[in-house]
Amino acid sequence: MTATTPEARPRSARAVTWTRRRRSWARTAKAFGRSRSGMLGLGIFIVFALLALLAPLLFPASELDVTKATGPIFGPPSLTYWLGTDDSGRSVLALVVWGARISLLVGLCATVLSMVIGTSMGIAAGHYRGFRGGALDRLTDWFLVIPYLPLAIVMASVLGRSLLNIIIVIGVTSWPGTARLIRAQTLTVEGRPYLERAKALGAGNLHQMGKHVLPNVMPLVLANTTLAVSISILSETTLSFLGLGDPDAVSWGSILNSAFSAGAISQGAWWYLAAPGVCVVLVVLGFNLIGRALEDILDPYGDGA
């Protein structure tokens, strides 16, 4: 479709497109490998992803059971309990490792949801002219202006506390920024001649958006995704800290919530607070570093400050 193939090399148009795309991915990956901060961020993510996947092997799930806890109450870090114990004698290290599962799961799923909504809204708002485009644009504006956390709080309170609901809440409240960005990019893509060609050949709206606009905004979506993961993880932490997370799931935010309500501050149990917080900062920082490195590489102006 996008390239005319000479008779001598009977490769399908699709194969040509995919070769071109593979090359451009390889170029991006190579440039990313040269970015030290980007690789540092990727390293942090891999470490935490491994911890999350291996959690059941490292610590049996029974360690999270309050009734089976054996450690001292608010015990400071020691050789048996590297990160100390909580108010019911559970190992904070085990809690934090298990918390990585939920925090990363919610962060990644919510980001996917937010990206799907944001990208489709952005492309549609940029593609359609007149009333439809205007209406989508207005809707994005509205969601952009409504303060994020109060909206997430009322939605979480209304929907009830479960893992799926917190994913929905974060996904549904965090898409407008992406939509804005993608819409702007769509408008520049729409102005290019090959879209006019596609239109002249009778391509429908869905074909134009899916086959021509989407591949061109994909790099931007990718860079934005990593930045969105950090926002999603921070949101999950905040909502769980406020007690709006799944009551049965241990996440970094819910650990902070139990630490705060168990009086870790007045007890001086800094280890109970420090461990989950440091994890959040590291993972969010990691995704921010990856996102910034990708933005620099994919920046159309190349300057990359």
């Binding site: 932490t237 905040t238 900062v281 921010n288």
Partner: peptide, 12 residues
């Protein structure tokens, strides 16, 4: 600091 939940910094 940009990567930090503000309430956590406050608690610390």
């Amino acid at each position: 600091f940009y990567s930090m939940p503000e309430f956590w910094f406050g608690m610390i």
